[in-house]
Design a protein around this nucleic acid. Structure first.
Lengths: 129, 129
DNA sequence: CCTTGACCTTCCCGTGACTGGAACCCCTAT
DNA sequence: ATAGGGGTTCCAGTCACGGGAAGGTCAAGG
């Protein structure tokens, strides 16, 4: 299977697939003409990677998750730990964004938003003094 | 005022200040020895930039906001529009992160997390079929 | 006068996870 | 022979800096 079909099957851009090979997440075979030859197992891995990335795992997390996935003697605790750390980071990001959201939505609500220069948003951004 | 004092006053790393000059957000004077000479107005702008960045505005947003800030004849509607667009992006990011959070926290709760290989997290990441 | 150490300068590389594009090769159909 | 639609590599750019090297400047102390 060439890269375009693998791309369609995995739902990932060809560029992304080449990148995943570059960083060593997959190792497709090569045809005599140099074209990548994807096996079912490669497409399967790409699907795994696409889902893991969609959940926000980093490439390095994906590397570990993939190796755990393929290790039949893994401990589920190892997977859970990675997921929990990632969850904590997600929570941190959400909290930071919600803080921005709170401040900004308040300021936006206060700004009359017409052609007059008076603006509480800029007033808040200005340093005190 | 040299860069270290400006850094302390503005609460921004010296590296960041140099970067802001590089991208044209500030234009400090130069002493005869080539050192940057920060005026009060420069420090003031840096404070503005630090706050705007803390609210998640991009550098390009900051550039526009700063010009509006210094334009006494601005229309508050212009400021409000930028803030509203930014707010929309923040909301999108929060929603995406919350979706990840929901999926992941469910999977984490389902994973017993011991030394057995059975793991619903990996099972969910695996493509169907 | 010399040295030390804390400043300052510019310049270049690295970050994460790709994306776009150039330049070029391969294969099939017309 | 050529046109097109694959494929390949490699380089540059993204965003907002941070790290670190190489070297200039300045005030204080011996």
């Amino acid at each position: 299977m060439n890269i375009k079909d693998a791309s369609a099957r995995a739902g990932l851009p060809a560029k992304t697939i080449r990148y995943y090979e570059e960083v060593g997440l997959i190792r497709p075979l090569r045809d005599a003409n140099g074209y990548r030859a994807f096996r079912e197992s490669d497409v399967h891995k790409l699907g795994f990677l696409g889902r893991a990335r969609a959940l926000g795992f980093t490439i390095e997390d994906c590397r570990v998750l993939l190796s755990l996935y393929e290790d039949q003697s893994r401990a589920s605790a190892d997977v859970k730990e990675i997921a929990q750390k990632h969850l904590a980071q997600i929570s941190d990001k959400i909290a930071a964004l919600q803080a921005m959201q709170a401040t900004l939505s308040h300021l936006v609500a206060c700004c009359h938003g017409d052609d007059r220069p008076d603006c509480p948003i800029l007033a808040d951004l200005a340093p005190p003094g």
